[in-house]
Design a protein around this nucleic acid. Structure first.
Lengths: 219, 219, 219, 219
DNA sequence: GATGAATGAGGCTTCATTCAT
DNA sequence: CATGAATGAAGCCTCATTCAT
């Protein structure tokens, strides 16, 4: 018998509501992303974000606890997307150094070109804004670095080499991230040369490969 | 009567005044540096800066046009210092790849350890705060990148090789800066491990050398 | 055909509905009472009240016109309860001064101990919140004061005395209310000493009796 | 010799500045008092207060940390004034019951009549607004109650009596405060009858005297 | 009747900057 | 030169209330 407390199949209109709610959430997040990338986190006001998303300020606060929560969730999402993207390539490469090449190319030629706003937020706007945000940022970076490091260790085992020092794998992972970051920043955010990113990416990738090799020693 | 416009020999008290003025300027800049590094550019208020420098807000405004001017001059100074430091090593190396090694080691083992606050400001606080600041930041980065690029070209000519592409030298310069930046950020600002910077720096330097070699071709 | 306006015998389900409705009303009022006493009228939001009552905000607005209406009805209810309680004792005492003793003891030893939340709302939360509420509060106080005054006049007639001035009866009534109020506030709300309320109440009651006697003159 | 660090005699203009600053502080406090008494603490906005004081909002925040600080300092001041007023009478009475009479008369006939706004704030607006304020309020009340209690103990010793219970003196002190409070509230704030306060006060005072006597026992 | 997403006016507070002394 | 009181625009956020479903 129908128990009121029991979760029934959601009705059609409930489903639609749910979808609309999710859509709103994404619309607001998108508006904020756009403004943060264009005007900067501090210069973009909550009212502007609401306006661009075509909702009231109250609605923004219905979906996000506060302004910081907005960029926090944004960062979370971008980080997730980035990890997914890079992780896939490393997995497919399965211990060969090819994964590093393909991951780099995917990053420069696809991610950067398709989502320059996300790049700007991830590498510029999320820096130095608040303690909590900085802590979050650190965590996300560390996860990605951990991923890269794991890939480096797999390569090491696969090729039967060892690295220069205990820290080498980690340092290389950090270095690679740093290269990605600044190259994207330089050519995308500062110089608006998405066209050149192909050549640039290939060079960068070769630089990385050379770096890895130079820290590898045969047993 | 002495023409006021004509530069007389400065009197003793004028000299003292001059010295005191310069001292004030530096005190304020130092206080701001401290606070920006600790609390962030936005969270540090002009009043706090004045307090820490033991002057009044008005005095801060006598020496600096506005808050942005403060960080602008700070950035300028740090950039100059950094260029000096790295440039010297490249000059001394005179076309050999040794310059890259020594520059890296100097950066990680001396600059970072001695001036962690400057690192925080240069790589974190100056990002994404205002258009003008961002433009300034870009210029300073470009100068340093230009320096590194010149050094790379000198190495190329010296070793009689050529690089993979037209852009290779530039990309490598950018990459090296990116590595510096993120490694400093990761191990100094985030993990507070100045002790490990020696090992880390050596690995980083070898990574760079490997990268450069891998983008070099013999004629 | 049954005229909709005509009151038919209510069906069973209508009765149930009616009961449920009343129950809801009381649940919401109780939740509000709880929150007003704990967090204060202003700090308690309509959403919190709805949450605690396990209904939606909309439902709260179905039963109460607005937030003020909530505390208004609450006050009304508490005032009614209080008048009932005290009034009964005065009636039973029937002109002797005993009624004042018993009323006081009932107030301190029963009402305060059983309903500290009501005390907090009646004497603290309802003060200084809005004009309308203040007007309501005034009315309720005046009714109670009128009750006490009537009891005092009955005592006067019964004992064959007269009071010091025209206003004496009223002033005494107000004084007694003031004593009740502050003693409850002090020992219940501020010092959480419900245990001591017995001793305290007895002292207070004797104070009142002494006060009344001192304003009485034999003809 | 003149030491720059050493506090010299303040110059005339410094003194004037100091005076002006104090004046501003008082002007703002006065404006706030006026508005709090008229419109209530919550309904009075910081902007209105600034307007009435003829300064900018910023200036209000220069002198007071926040809105709560405003009423906190106000309360402090009123409490101090009240204690002074009552305390003086008790001291002069020196153990006789006369002090209670005079203190009451002073309160009703002078304080209430001269400063009805302060009465409104002390007894109405400061109630139930915030935790910190409530804590402060409690402290101030307790001090006054302590004063009254001390006076009662002196009377006891002087007259060579003892009170009904351990708590009697305290309960009487609380009761007296409660009477003062509600009588002032009733006749001043609610019924605007300052004229009647003389008669009312005399009755109240006699009530108190009777109460005290009734709790006193000869050894 | 019940729901809860949406609204938006209004409040508090901060802080870079100015300027009379 | 130095001071620090004064300014006021601008921003973040809350929350009582409404209304379509």
């Amino acid at each position: 018998m129908a128990d009121k407390k029991e979760k029934q199949h959601p009705t059609r209109s409930e489903l639609r509501r749910q979808r609309e709610k999710e859509q709103r959430f994404l619309t607001i997040l998108g508006a904020a992303e756009n403004l943060f990338a264009r005007k900067g986190y501090h210069k973009a006001s909550m009212e502007e974000i609401a306006d661009l998303a075509e909702v009231s300020v109250g609605t923004v606060y219905f979906y996000f606890k506060n302004k910081e929560d907005l960029i926090l969730q944004m960062l979370e999402k971008i980080g997730f997307q980035l990890r997914n993207l890079l992780g896939r390539e490393f997995k497919n490469a399965d211990g060969s150094i090819e994964g590093f090449k393909r991951a780099g190319i995917i990053f420069f030629e696809e991610f950067c070109v398709q989502y320059p706003e996300k790049v700007a937020i991830f590498f510029r706007e999320s820096a130095g804004q608040s303690q909590q945000l900085e802590a979050h940022r650190k965590k996300i970076f560390e996860k990605i670095i951990e991923d890269v490091q794991q890939a480096l260790l797999k390569v090491r085992d696969n090729l039967g080499v060892r690295y220069r020092s205990q820290l080498s794998a980690e340092v290389m992972a950090v270095s690679i991230m740093g290269m990605y970051e600044r190259i994207a920043y330089q050519y995308l955010i500062w110089q608006h040369r998405p066209r050149d990113l192909q050549t640039i990416g290939r060079d960068a990738v070769e630089f990385i490969v050379g770096g890895i090799r130079n820290l590898s020693r045969n047993h």
